[in-house]
């Protein structure tokens, strides 16, 4: 415990190219890039399929199969493949694939499962097509889509540590290096930093999730709870 305290309070570990701020920034950088690309791919597709009410088989199964794909295996394949090669890029691509399933599934289900009565009411008011999507389906799907983003991001930020195994950066460097030179302090410090980061990201996203949920849905939920 003392060794850990010493490690965290040693100024040398807070500066330079192997310092905590740099490794932290690398971990966040890898996560943000991977999540941004995964969202651009998965969210429009999931929303579109949900809106059309088609392709559920695709969305659900891509989601399920995707979850079974071993990220570590993909990482090694990408690192060994010359066009990608060792380094952060291999990790980012593997993480994109890792991030897509919860995003896609939640976006699809979120839109598809909008109450048929709500849809009917909107249709009665003359809503259709894009307008229906924008004004009715998306606002109702926000809680599930946000939950998908939150799940996915937390998984990715924690898994981004794998980048260190293929010559990339991030907090995983401490774990890999600590294991290699049998420096348990370094290893545990890396693990703690990764865990703290993942929990913090989860908390921040939980706050955002609450903020972006349309007020109507919160009121509805409150009303249901009151009745119950």
């Amino acid at each position: 415990m003392m060794a850990l305290w010493d490690w965290f309070t040693d100024p040398a570990n807070w500066t330079g190219s192997n310092g905590i701020p740099v490794r932290f920034a690398q971990q966040m950088g890898i996560t943000l890039i991977a999540m941004a690309i995964a969202m651009v791919i998965a969210l429009p597709l999931g929303v579109y399929l949900g809106h059309k009410g088609k392709g559920g088989f695709l969305a659900i199964n891509v989601g399920n199969v995707g979850r079974a794909v071993p990220t570590f295996g993909l990482l090694m394949i990408f690192a060994a493949w010359a066009p990608i090669g060792v380094g952060n890029l291999a990790a980012i691509i593997a993480l994109i694939i890792f991030a897509i399933p919860p995003l896609l599934t939640n976006a699809y289900i979120g839109v598809r499962d909008v109450d048929e009565e709500v849809r009917g009411a909107a249709r009665g008011m003359g809503f259709s097509g894009l307008l229906m999507l924008r004004k009715v389906e998306l606002p109702n799907a926000v809680p599930l889509i946000a939950a998908g983003i939150r799940t996915s991001t937390v998984q990715v930020v924690a898994t981004a540590s794998l980048a260190a195994l293929v010559g990339g950066g991030g907090l995983g460097v401490y774990v890999v290096e600590g294991f290699a030179i049998q420096d348990d302090t370094l290893l545990i410090a890396g693990a703690i930093l990764t865990a703290v980061l993942a929990i913090s990201v989860d908390l921040v996203l939980a706050l955002i999730q609450r903020r972006v949920t349309p007020r109507g849905l919160t009121l509805e939920q409150a009303a249901i709870e009151e009745m119950a």
């Binding site: 060994a80 060792v86 380094g87 010559g167 890999v176």
Partner: peptide
């Protein structure tokens, strides 16, 4: 310095890729 594997395929790949 890039941390890879110890004398394994990853190191060889990194060399061949000029990383």
């Amino acid at each position: 310095f890039t941390a890879l594997d110890t004398g394994g395929p990853l190191t060889v790949q990194a060399l061949l890729q000029n990383k």
